[in-house]
Amino acid sequence: MFSPASLIRKLGHATVERIWRLGFAARFFVAILRLSGTSFRRLPLTLREIYFSGVLSLLIILVSGLFVGLVLGLQGFETLQRYGSTEALGVLVALSLTRELGPVVAALLFASRAGSSVTAEIGLMKATEQLKAMDMMAVNPIARVVAPRFWGGVVAMPLLAAMFSAMGVLGGWLIGVVFIGVDDGAFWSQMQAGVDWRYDVWNGVIKSFVFGIAVSLIAVFEGYDSVPTAEGVSRAITRTVVTSALTILALDFVLTSFMFRGAS
């Protein structure tokens, strides 16, 4: 059973399986892009998905953003106080949020809140053979079901990340200025001097857009590729959350090294 040969065979099988899935995912991505005309011609389809993945994620995103901002404000103040530069609290909070925490944490929350539900929906549609039924009626399930969900996620993600960052900055302001008593003018003016629109804010938006594409693709792909049983769908949902989280963090490293290398 555990002979070396069978171990190597299993390893090889797993590797080939992964690469096979990766290739299928790439082809699936191209198919979504090619068949996404329907999502824009029949806008209500996409709007419905923006509602489900965007509007319904509002609460978790706004509340988490606020709390992350509050914690950043508290911790930042603790550390900056030692160097007598508490006015820099605004820069600290705003830069951490717009560059990293906003896009990354919002994407992680988005993957577990919206991505998992998209996977579950598509997986159950597959398990109950609704996708096959659509095919029978000459309705392409990728155009009708998958593409709108993909685009809904891609549209919702940057907006959610921006709200997360904005909420976080307000949270940092609340702790720093209202509760602790850092000077209000210094807080905002240092922030405005230290945060560059193009360099910091816009790069954060690009990041969240890339994360939106990655998370949405993983969510719809895992749902579409799931084993059509109760167990298979539950595994697909787990895989969505795990793969999304890993992809987000890895992509974040790659994007950061491209965007924020060298100059200050």
Binding site: I50, T98, A166, V169, W197
Partner: peptide, 26 residues
């Protein structure tokens, strides 16, 4: 549903504007 999506998009754009004008130095 359209109302909610509109509200959501408006809120997102407001957040972006806030980041651009109040947080950044556009």
């Amino acid at each position: 549903l359209d109302l909610w999506v509109g509200f959501f998009v408006a809120l997102g754009i407001a957040a972006l504007l806030f980041l651009a004008l109040k947080v950044g130095n556009l």
